[in-house]
């Protein structure tokens, strides 16, 4: 009898304590649905989702896929299905055109002041911040490459026949590469489209693959199918873990890049929680952990990284050197560019 009584008492205590804890959490029972990158899922879970869930008591449901697919998904989704979207700038523009990006109350973002100025509201006042920068460069294997590569223009070297990979125009970094090619030959996208595509036609013999998947490209690099690839900086971290000898090149033409941004999706039923999440993403601890794990370059000005960790992040001085394309312009021209790209690279 005594034993049973003691057990029951202990149980009640335990339940009430947990309940008390749970009740402390302001967002207990709520679910935050975010659309994000599929890359590095476990690290995101560790560095961001778990701490946030512990802090607020909510549940995070993360939906990961590549950028283009996610735009489709969100555009077609019902209101309230998604709360937060974490996606690249070009695609934020596309979503904005569909009316899917909601405004944010900047006063709720306590960390806003600690991040680079140009990261605070890149899409205009009232819209979400960037949380990381990335830039386009070239990764090559010095052991395999017959020539040294220092710029985009170097890719036209005939000795690289059938040996390089470039992003497809429909890929995230596709338009960035397009601008890089234009810059390499003193041309302007839009006005000089004919000339740019003529140059791309010249590049064709060197192109082994027009990739849509950066991971597969890295595999090709590892297998010796290609000796050089045009990639975004975060891919270099993955590539280096396979082979530390790979070299990263900041192209001489300039650092074409973009932001990945955090935004609230129109119609979200958890706007307050969403804004809290976005603020959390910009907090020191999160940004530092992500930088240390090599996931994303930090966007906070107060984060100091040692040389090793800073190595391929778009960080420090480089942030100010970033050349960002006019994404409205890109979105407008993308169908035409895609068709010409198909005709250049898709037709034998």
């Amino acid at each position: 009898m005594k034993k049973i009584a003691a057990l029951v008492l202990a149980l009640i205590l335990a339940v009430s304590v947990t309940a008390a804890f749970a009740e402390d959490k302001p967002y207990a029972g709520q679910t935050l649905t975010i659309s994000t990158f599929a890359f590095n899922a476990e690290l995101l879970q560790k560095n961001i989702y778990e701490p946030f869930m512990a802090l607020t008591g909510c549940t995070i449901v993360a939906d990961g896929a590549n950028n283009a697919v996610r735009v489709s998904k969100i555009a077609e989704a019902a209101e309230g299905e998604y709360d937060v979207v974490i996606i690249g700038d070009m695609f934020v523009k596309q979503l904005m055109a569909e009316g899917k990006i909601d405004t944010i109350d900047a006063s709720k973002l306590t960390n806003l002041g600690s991040i680079y100025e140009n990261a605070r509201a890149p899409m205009g006042e009232g819209y979400g911040p960037a949380y990381t920068f990335n830039r386009l460069g070239i990764v090559y294997n010095p052991a395999e490459c017959p020539v040294e590569i220092k710029s985009f223009a170097d890719l036209w070297n005939p000795e690289l026949a059938d040996y390089i990979a470039i992003p497809a125009i429909t890929n995230t970094s596709g338009p960035l590469f397009y601008y890089g090619v234009a810059a390499a030959f003193g041309l302007t996208p839009g006005a000089d489209d004919d000339a740019i595509f003529a140059k791309l036609a010249e590049l064709k013999p060197n192109v082994k693959s027009n990739y849509t998947s950066a991971n597969n490209t890295i595999t090709m690099l590892n297998q010796g199918e290609i000796c050089a690839a045009v990639l975004l900086d975060y891919s270099y971290t993955t590539a280096k873990s396979a082979n530390p000898d790979y070299v990263w090149v900041n192209p001489a033409e300039g650092l074409y890049g973009g932001y990945n941004m955090l935004n609230v999706v129109t119609g979200s039923k958890n706007k307050e929680l969403a804004e809290l999440f976005i603020d959390f993403y910009l907090s020191y601890d999160v940004q530092y952990a992500e930088a240390m794990d090599g996931v994303d370059s930090p966007v906070r000005t107060d984060i100091e990284l040692d040389a090793e960790h800073a190595a391929n992040f778009t960080y420090g001085e480089m942030v100010n050197q970033l050349i960002l394309p006019d994404w409205d312009f890109v979105t407008e021209n993308l169908p035409a560019w895609t068709e010409r790209w198909n005709e250049t690279f898709g037709v034998k």
């Binding site: 283009a68 697919v69 489709s72 497809a168 429909t170 192109v207 693959s209 027009n210 993308l334 169908p335 895609t338 198909n342 690279f345 898709g346 037709v347 034998k348």
Partner: peptide, 17 residues
């Protein structure tokens, strides 16, 4: 890219464009 087939074409039209 220069060996596209109809299914990859559908994907490009539907998902990318």
């Amino acid at each position: 890219t220069d060996t596209q087939v109809l299914s990859t074409m559908v994907y490009q039209y539907a998902m990318s464009l």
